[in-house]
Structure formats: C-alpha cells, structure tokens
C-alpha cells in the first residue's frame, strides 16, 4: 500500500505553506519577482513625471558620421500631457533650411499605433502618415522614432536586474522588452536613478540580440522644483560608428498650451 502522505511529508508541506503565507505578509518586497519590481519602478517613474502639464523646448540635433562629418537640425518641441493616454507632441523644424516650416504632430497611445501628421510647406499640405515605422531613423540620425516617443508604462515588460551606482547617484538597472509591435529592439537595459527617476543610460539590443546603440544623458536640470530633464542626450550606434547629440535648450513648463494647439489642421498656421 503506497504511502500517500507520511507525517514527515505533511510537516514539510505545512512548513512550506506557512513560509509562503508568513513570507508574503512579513517581507512583501523580498518575495516580489524581478518583473514586479521592474514594473513598479516604471510606474513610479511615470507617477513622478505626472502633472507637468505642458512644456516647450528647443532641440539642436547634431549628427556625426564615423569620419567625423557633422550636420545640424534645429527643432522646436511642444508637448502637452494627456491624462490616461500618451502625450501630444509637436515638432517644428527650423533647420536645415530646406525643411524649414515642416511640422510633425504626434498623438501617442501606449500599445496602439500613434496618430501622426506631417505638414509639408512646399505643398501646403497636411498629410496623415503611417506611424507603424517605429524603428526607422528620425531625420537621418541615430535616434529611431521609438526612442523619442512618449514612454508609457504599458509599452514594455520589465525586469529589475540589478542596482548600481551611476555617476553621483544610485541606479536601478532594469531590462525592458518592447510590448508594442514593430520595434527594432529585442530588449533594452536602462539605468534609472532612485531619487528622481532620471534615465541616465539605455542600451538597445537589435533584432539579432546584439548591442546596437547606447544612449547617455547628462546635465539634468530640475524644473518647477520637481521635473528633471537632461540638457544633452548622446546616442551612439556601435555597429556603424555614427552618433547623434541632442542639446535641449529653453525648457519652459506650464506655458498654457492646450488641445487647440495640437490639432492636425492647425499645423498650417505654425510659423
């Protein structure tokens, strides 16, 4: 007759169950999975940045080839925070001169495809564009569209893989796997500081799982006594040697922008 449960087995099971119950109630953090911790950090980072309302800024983008040749783009950015959805954002191009007056409007939506319109001043035409091309380069730079888009929590699945110092701060190191379609990446590793949830560094791994690019941010400024924004962002492509530097200037928060300023047909009147 087979022994289904010996007293010792029963004891072990009891002990095991009580450990789980005890463990969960007494030490919630330690029993959390790395995935849960990663998600919590992403949620905390999003919560930290909520309430900024809107901002405007000037962006100077310097593209550098492997040989060291450079070219510059000047873009004005206007962003409106949208509660419960991705932000609305306007990019107005001032340089190079042949694209002066071109404007791009994006309504970003977490996992759903973004709505995107382009105003072409030569034709005086507002054109709805297909936003499915997330992995394509932005203006010939090493930044892809997906690198510059609004970072909603649901866009990735997360995993906390470590904690280490990053410059003067302590950082969470989290792995993010894009949950949206058509990403050019299999995963990203992000260094996020524990205090102000500043994204200090991101490594991007391509579809073959090889390291493709590294983003490093620098010279963070705090606005409205709370929100951190970097003054420079450098994106290096390790595979082709190209790099792009973004310099952010003239950040202004809560400037009074509203939905009215982010209508597709209002693109025509931007100067």
């Amino acid at each position: 007759m087979p022994k289904i449960l010996t007293p010792s087995n029963q004891t072990r099971i009891y002990l095991f169950c009580s450990f789980i119950v005890f463990g969960l109630s007494a030490f919630p953090a330690s029993a959390q999975t790395a995935e849960q911790k990663g998600l919590d950090i992403a949620k905390a980072a999003q919560a930290y940045d909520e309430g900024f309302g809107d901002f405007t800024a000037d962006m100077v983008m310097t593209l550098k080839t492997r040989k060291g040749d450079t070219s510059t783009r000047n873009i004005r950015i206007r962003t409106l925070e949208v509660q419960g959805d991705g932000d609305k954002s306007l990019s107005i191009f001032d340089e190079p001169n042949d694209v002066k007056g071109t404007a791009m409007l994006t309504y970003s939506h977490g996992l759903e495809p973004d709505d995107q319109w382009l105003y072409l001043p030569a034709l005086k035409k507002v054109k709805r564009i297909n936003s499915r091309n997330k992995s394509g380069p932005f203006m010939g730079s090493t930044f892809a569209f997906e690198d510059l888009s609004s970072q909603e929590v649901e866009k990735y699945t997360y995993k906390l893989i470590g904690e280490e110092s990053c410059g003067d701060w302590q950082c969470f190191v989290t792995e993010r796997v894009p949950a949206y379609k058509h990403s050019g990446y299999t995963r990203q590793v992000a260094w996020i500081d524990k205090e102000g949830y500043r994204m200090m560094k991101v490594e991007y791994y391509d579809r073959k799982k090889a390291l493709l690019k590294t983003l490093t941010t620098d010279s963070f400024q705090q606005y409205l006594g709370h929100y951190w924004r970097p003054s420079t962002m450098d994106m290096i492509n390790h595979q082709n040697g190209k790099s792009t530097r973004l310099e952010w200037k003239n950040y202004q928060f809560q400037t009074g922008l509203s939905d009215r300023d982010f209508r597709s047909q209002a693109l025509k009147r931007l100067k």
Partner: peptide, 9 residues
C-alpha cells in the same frame, strides 16, 4: 509600405 528593406534604413 516596406520598412527598413534588406536590413538598411
């Protein structure tokens, strides 16, 4: 549309 054809941009 075909994006990033032949692993180019």
């Amino acid at each position: 549309s075909f994006y990033g054809i032949y692993e180019t941009d």
